[in-house]
C-alpha cells in the first residue's frame, strides 16, 4: 500500500514538474499521418527547440500541444491535463507576420491585451485591479527590456522590438508553459541570438517551460537545453549534440546526412532534402 502511495506521490510530483509529456503520439490529417511515434518531455524551467525541415509537422506539434488537433495514437498531457484543457496557463505566440507600419496601437496596449483582452465589458476606472494590471504590464515589459519603446505605436517598431513586446504579451499572465512558433523567423542573426538569450533568461528566472519552433538552430544553439527534431514522419528528442549528429539525422531521414561543426561552433547539415541550417553555415565559411 505504501508502495502505491509513493508511486502516486512520484507521479503527482512528475505531473507538477513536467510541463509537456507526449508518449508515442501520432497525428493524422486528412488520412495522412503527419508524424507518429513522437515522444517528448519538457520540464518546468526547460528550454526546448522544435526543429525540422519545412512541412515536417513542427506547427502540427504546437497545435497538438494546444489541443487544437486530436492525437490519432499515443498519449499526451500538458500541464498535467489533456491537451487543450490548461490553455489558460499557456502563453502562446503564433507564427507571425509583423504588424504593418500603419498599425497605430501602442506596444503597451498590445501587451495588456494578453492580460484582459478576453474580458467582456469595459474596465472601471479607479479599481485596485486596474493598478495591479498596469503594474504587471510594466513589470513584464521591463523583463523583456522593452520599456523604452513600449509606448510607441507598434507598427513603427522594428521586427525585434515587436517580437519582444509579443513575448511580453505571452508572458503577462505568468504562464507555466510558453509556446513560441518561429519567433525568430523575421529577425536578423544578432536579434535572433538576443531574443533566444532573452527567452532562456525568462525560462530560468520565471521557471517557465519553453517550446520554441525554429528554422535555424545556430543562433539559439548555446541557449537550448534540448531539441526535438521532426523529420521523415517521426521525431527524435535529446540534447543538441545527440540529435544534431550525422548518425541520428541519417537514421531519421533514412538517407546519408553529414553534420559538420565549423570552427566557430556552428553546425552545418549537409545532404538533407531541405537544408534549414545552410544560412548559418554560409557565414562560417567567410
Amino acid at each position: 500500500m505504501s508502495q502505491a502511495g509513493t508511486a502516486a506521490d512520484i507521479e503527482a510530483r512528475n505531473a507538477k514538474e513536467t510541463a509537456v509529456a507526449f508518449e508515442r503520439a501520432a497525428v493524422r490529417m486528412g488520412g495522412r499521418t503527419i508524424w507518429s511515434d513522437l515522444s517528448l518531455s519538457v520540464a518546468r524551467g526547460e528550454f526546448v527547440a522544435i526543429l525540422g525541415p519545412n512541412g515536417a509537422g513542427k506547427s502540427t506539434l504546437i497545435k497538438a500541444v494546444l489541443g487544437l488537433l486530436p492525437l490519432a495514437d499515443g498519449r499526451a498531457s500538458v500541464l498535467g491535463r489533456p491537451p487543450g484543457e490548461a490553455n489558460d496557463r499557456i502563453g502562446y505566440l503564433p507564427q507571425r507576420r509583423n504588424f504593418d507600419a500603419g498599425t497605430r496601437i501602442r506596444g503597451v496596449d498590445i501587451v495588456k491585451l494578453g492580460l484582459d483582452g478576453a474580458r467582456w465589458g469595459i474596465p472601471i476606472p479607479g479599481l485596485p485591479s486596474r493598478a495591479r494590471d498596469a503594474a504587471r504590464v510594466a513589470e513584464v515589459i521591463e523583463l523583456v527590456d522593452a520599456t523604452v519603446y513600449a509606448r510607441k505605436p507598434i507598427g513603427e517598431l522594428s521586427g525585434g522590438e515587436q517580437q519582444r513586446l509579443l513575448i511580453a504579451q505571452a508572458l503577462v499572465r505568468r504562464p507555466e508553459l510558453l509556446v513560441l512558433d518561429e519567433p525568430l523567423d523575421s529577425l536578423d542573426l544578432p536579434n535572433q541570438a538576443a531574443v533566444a538569450a532573452l527567452v532562456r533568461r525568462i525560462c530560468r528566472e520565471e521557471n517557465v517551460a519553453v517550446l520554441l519552433v525554429a528554422h535555424d538552430i545556430n543562433p539559439i544553439l548555446s541557449y537550448l537545453d534540448r531539441v526535438v527534431y521532426i523529420a521523415g514522419g517521426t521525431a527524435v528528442e535529446g540534447s543538441p549534440e545527440q540529435v544534431i549528429s550525422s548518425e541520428t539525422l541519417s537514421r531519421l531521414y533514412g538517407a546519408p546526412i553529414e553534420v559538420l561543426r565549423a570552427s566557430d561552433g556552428r553546425l552545418v547539415v549537409v545532404g538533407q532534402p531541405e537544408a534549414p541550417f545552410v544560412h548559418g553555415g554560409r557565414h562560417s565559411h567567410d
Partner: peptide
C-alpha cells in the same frame, strides 16, 4: 476589449 484583441491580433485572441 475582445473586439480590440480580435482586431489587432486575431490568432492570439482565438487561442485565448
Amino acid at each position: 476589449r475582445p473586439l480590440f484583441f480580435a482586431s489587432v491580433d486575431a490568432d492570439v485572441a482565438r487561442a485565448r
